[in-house]
Design a protein around this nucleic acid. Structure first.
Lengths: 135, 135
DNA sequence: TATTAGTCTATCAAAAAAATATACTATCTT
DNA sequence: AAGATAGTATATTTTTTTGATAGACTAATA
């Protein structure tokens, strides 16, 4: 399951993507429209800014906006940034790999199945970008 | 990510599947061999018994054993029993569905993608049973 | 220089996950 | 029938993660 945090992130990003042309968007506007707790949203947007996906401007007329083309950001990037691993087991994760104790990855049936699930999942998510998420 | 609890469940079930012929297996034997906290394992096995996957015998010569053919139990059954939903969003879950507020499922891009991920995942997991998990 | 709006860091609360404790019941052996 | 074996049933505790909030600070603009 995705956490609420990453769901909020996707909603906020979708909102921003749709308003690309209108210049910077206020955190408070996103918060109200998408029903996301303001302070929580601040943290999320900041994280997305630090990851160079968004940028922001302070003061009057300020707000958040995309630093890069939404179509260039894979969904996997957001999930991994906010939630962490996409795979169902640490020993099968590409970006957050951890070896599993008590079982040999070469002969572990669970490992094999979960690797297949991971690949099937990535095949879909890597072909989707933030531009594909219209609400 | 699967919880440790369901990972433990899979390990224990694999161990039991491999020892089908030898009669009932002690909880303590599984616990030691698979390095699963004994008391935690007791709860897990009990849950699997209540779900009619395992059965048990008390007293000397007792222990746990399969009630049904391991080949007849899909992996999805275990995951849903122990962890709950397989889907990445509640609004896309078949067995634990919850409607999402603040977005229309018919026009939500996130919804669509996650539905595809769910289907791809299930396509794999529904074709695997406990008999496929050799360690 | 006042106002606007994002930044930073810390903290808190609630929920979920992981583990443990304790008393009880059924079954087998002698 | 007694004693040992081994699962049953609940409850509690601890730890981690998630979700949310607070408050002081900084940059930009009019």
């Amino acid at each position: 399951m995705l956490t609420k945090k990453s769901q909020y992130a996707f909603k906020a990003l979708t909102y921003l993507a749709e308003r690309q042309m209108n210049g910077p968007v206020l955190i408070s506007e996103i918060s109200e429209n998408k029903k996301i707790p303001l302070k929580f949203l601040e943290n999320i947007l900041l994280e997305l800014k630090r990851a160079d996906i968004l940028d922001s401007k302070k003061g009057k007329g300020g707000g958040y906006f995309f630093k890069v083309d939404p179509a260039s950001v894979q969904m996997t990037k957001i999930i991994r940034l906010i939630d962490g691993p996409i795979a169902m087991l640490p020993c099968v994760s590409l970006n957050f790999y951890e070896r599993c104790r008590n079982c040999d990855e070469n002969h572990c049936g669970l490992h094999d199945v979960m690797k297949q699930v991971r690949d099937a999942t990535l095949a879909i998510l890597e072909n989707r970008t933030l531009a594909d998420l219209k609400d």
